[in-house]
């Protein structure tokens, strides 16, 4: 076990020496790998922010039922009991027009506008959750509610959440595609660098074989080189994403504030960071392994 560990330690040290022997080339390679990885990692960070934004809004489809402003409270209560008794309704929450007015007034941007009005412009409303949340069932309920006396307008509130969710799903798919493509790019980079290293170290490989080195012994430093390139590139990607987060945070918060949205960029969390480094290291190792499989026999 001690000898095995010593072998791996020597291979790692040799890989490190080879990497640092040509610092400019190595740094440029790490930057190339880092940029390739930063794109999906940054995309993941943006998606997390958007997901959080969507999560703040209710993801449960709801129907808003607005009464006509002139409707008497008695009629409204009658609608309320009809909703409660309806077989398709799971829950109906009443929003009195006075309550809506007071909530809107608490928004500094709207207070002045509302104060300028002579009367309360908001109607009584119900927020309805349906038992069956399938779009067709929700549409059917909305059509039925529209026919009830005193009901002015019926709105499916969840439509934009669903649209955002669909966009997020599309974003996730696109991100996976991008990650796959750029992961392939990382493998290609380490493949090429390992091939160059095998050609450069041809004499050493030949001598080592003659002195009794096993193929595993010869391959190991090259695999560690791939691992180091991947890990180094992953670290560069992490730094790029962290830098971009800091740089973009203030302007994005300002923009989100204009739309009354709470959208903040956060740097990659611990789990995402570990995942990034693990993926980068594995892809680097894989690229080196492919390259050795392809080129080692020719050395």
């Amino acid at each position: 076990m001690k000898a095995w560990l010593a072998h791996h330690g020597q291979s790692f040290a040799l890989a490190w020496r080879r990497l640092t022997a040509t610092p400019v080339n190595s740094i440029l390679s790490l930057v190339a790998v880092g940029i390739a990885l930063a794109l999906p990692a940054g995309g993941q960070m943006l998606l997390s922010g958007a997901r959080e934004l969507a999560g703040n809004a209710t993801a449960t489809p709801q129907i808003s039922v607005f009464m006509a402003i002139a409707t008497e409270r008695g009629r409204t209560n009658e609608i309320g009991s009809r909703l409660e008794k309806h077989a398709g309704v799971r829950q109906a929450r009443f929003l009195a027009r006075e309550e809506t007015l007071s909530r809107m007034k608490s928004n500094p941007g709207l207070r002045e506008v509302i104060d300028a009005l002579s009367a309360n412009p908001f109607p009584d409303a119900f927020v309805v959750s349906a038992r069956d949340e399938a779009p067709e069932a929700m549409d059917k309920l909305a059509v039925e509610f529209r026919k009830w006396p005193g009901v002015e307008h019926v709105q499916l509130d969840s439509a934009w959440v669903r649209r955002l969710d669909a966009l997020l799903r599309l974003g996730r798919t696109g991100l996976l595609l991008l990650a796959g493509l750029l992961g392939g790019g990382l493998i290609a980079i380490t493949f090429s660098i390992t091939r160059m290293q095998v050609l450069t170290q041809r004499a050493e490989i030949e001598v080592s074989r003659l002195l009794g080195a096993t193929e595993a012994f010869i391959r190991r430093p090259f695999l560690y080189l791939g691992l180091l390139l991947g890990l180094g590139g992953g670290a560069v990607a992490w730094l790029l994403v962290a830098g971009a987060t800091i740089w973009l945070r203030a302007p994005l918060a300002e923009l989100a504030g204009l739309y009354d949205l709470n959208l903040t960029l956060r740097p990659l969390g611990l789990v995402d960071s570990i995942l990034l480094l693990a993926c980068a290291g594995s892809l680097g190792w894989l690229g080196a392994a492919f390259s050795l499989r392809q080129n080692h026999g020719q050395s």
Binding site: K2, A3, W4, A6, H7, Q10, A203, E204, E206, V207, S208, L210, L211, G212, A213, F217
Partner: peptide
């Protein structure tokens, strides 16, 4: 078949590294 990028000590060390001798 000496390795010209390694010094004399490291050249002689190579067979022992391959065999996994204690340092």
């Amino acid at each position: 078949k000496l390795l010209f990028d390694r010094n004399a000590y490291d050249n002689v060390m190579l067979p022992l590294s391959i065999s996994g001798f204690p340092a």
